[in-house]
Design a protein around this nucleic acid. Structure first.
Lengths: 256, 256
DNA sequence: CGGACGCCTTGACTTACATCAATCGCCACC
DNA sequence: GGTGGCGATTGATGTAAGTCAAGGCGTCCG
């Protein structure tokens, strides 16, 4: 692992309170791998032996059943994933695959569990991270069950605007097909939702989105701090836990 | 707190590995309260100062937005709830209210966090519990997004059958209106789903349900261990973590 | 004994969303 | 300079689910 990468991992909230020695223990037998776009890292039901840390690129977490698929989250660096499965030594409940070329660090699950049992501070940090992920999922379910497709899109756009600095115009971070899956709808429906939402002052030009009248859009979206989590996206690594505590950002579709 | 109750709490997986001393510390300043049916214990957005432990009765965890409501989980004894909010000292993302007369133990959140930072074993147990809850929610989202209402009902019935011993006939544990909300549909729609599902050998008589031809029903339900978690319900207290590891039961709608 | 209430059910209707199919635009590649 | 492929869009249509309204059937209570 390069030194730069080590520092980025070290700076994760997960490792903030731990000693250098423990950090070395945990990151001892780790791999740093580069994967091309579209690589499946993990399939549903696979046993999980490593904690994954996304250092560069992006990763989709998804699930499927009966020939249907859905996207549960799209991760941006720096994020850890499948922490819960590692803690329980359980099989993965979702699949993970790279969206673009990605650098991924793989930490030994066994070393991680050992460290948790030895260092209460670290165990607490893990519990905080898990709590943040948990709350992200609660937000996601509320978003899914209580809002319609149009409202989900409107809130997503508002979240993105804030996350990207709050300017009038911003860029969609993913392909629309992926965004549709993340929002729990079909690409066709997302397209229609975009054209409907034009009436609320949203102008779409490819991946460029301009929110002309935020007030009007908010009247449609009715954003709620108990579902959405608007914060300017972290300078510096921000864990799920911190975001949940109001020190960083969290969207309903992130988490884990 | 009565001795019987103390033992039941002590037997929770959360406290399985901890010393008597630490257990006394955590349960030191705790209350045992009895609430009548329909009492709101917590509203969305409330600050959370206690970890709740349901000892008797049942509790609904719900959420609302824009005049819509939904049920996220119905808890049975012995379960803890709002652990994630306690760990993060954050506001509640869901509301909690008693369904029937319930005995609820309230443990100091502050004492709990202190204990986690002192005792790595306990911290680990908390992390395991959180992981189990997290995975329960992942199952719940998959259930919600990938299946239709009829399929959700079918799988719910199969889960209940197993949970209640696997006999031909079992009893619905809740009112149908509540069940509908838990399954993410309206009471009217649930009623229709029940009549549709009669074609698959399900006979409903008030709260009594008989599954005449399980094989036929399973062909409709297509249960999946990565969504559903069929296990005979615990003799003895079984935490989320253990259930996730295959030592107990877990349905998609349970989980903190 | 009636009556009121709550829960469940049923039917007609509306709305939201998925599906199927065709087309367009864009970019890469030959 | 095609041309093939992929994503996005658009329209037509089907299906699932929510809504509104009415009625049945218990239980509790005056």
């Amino acid at each position: 692992m390069r030194n730069v990468d080590a520092e980025r991992v070290r700076a994760l909230p997960l490792f903030s309170g731990v000693s250098d020695e423990l950090f070395r223990d945990v990151t001892g037998g780790c791999f740093l791998q580069k994967f091309p776009a579209g690589t499946t890292l993990l399939m549903e039901g696979d046993p999980v032996d490593f904690l994954y840390v996304l250092l560069d690129g992006s990763v989709e977490l998804g699930a499927s059943w009966n020939d249907k698929e859905t996207t549960l989250a799209v991760l941006q660096p720096v994020s850890t994933f499948i922490l819960a499965a590692v803690v329980l030594e359980a099989d993965a409940l979702m699949s993970a695959q790279t969206i673009e070329r990605s650098d991924i660090l793989m930490l030994s699950g066994e070393a991680l569990r050992r460290a948790m049992k030895e260092d209460a501070q670290f165990g607490f940090a893990v519990a905080q991270e898990l709590s943040g992920c948990y709350r992200g999922l609660v937000r996601s379910i509320k978003n899914q069950r209580l809002r319609g497709g149009l409202e989900r899109l409107a809130n997503y756009l508002i979240t993105q605007r804030v996350k990207q600095g709050g300017g009038e115009t911003f860029t969609l971070p993913h392909e629309k097909r992926l965004l549709a899956s993340l929002l729990g709808m079909t690409p066709e429906n997302l397209s229609r939702a975009f054209s409907t939402i034009a009436d609320y002052g949203v102008v779409v030009n490819g991946p460029q989105v301009t929110i002309a009248r935020p007030v009007v859009l908010e009247r449609l979206a009715k954003p709620d701090p108990l579902i959405d989590n608007h914060r300017p996206h972290g300078l510096g690594p921000v864990g799920e836990a911190q975001r949940e505590r109001g020190l960083g950002d969290h969207s309903p579709q992130a988490g884990l």
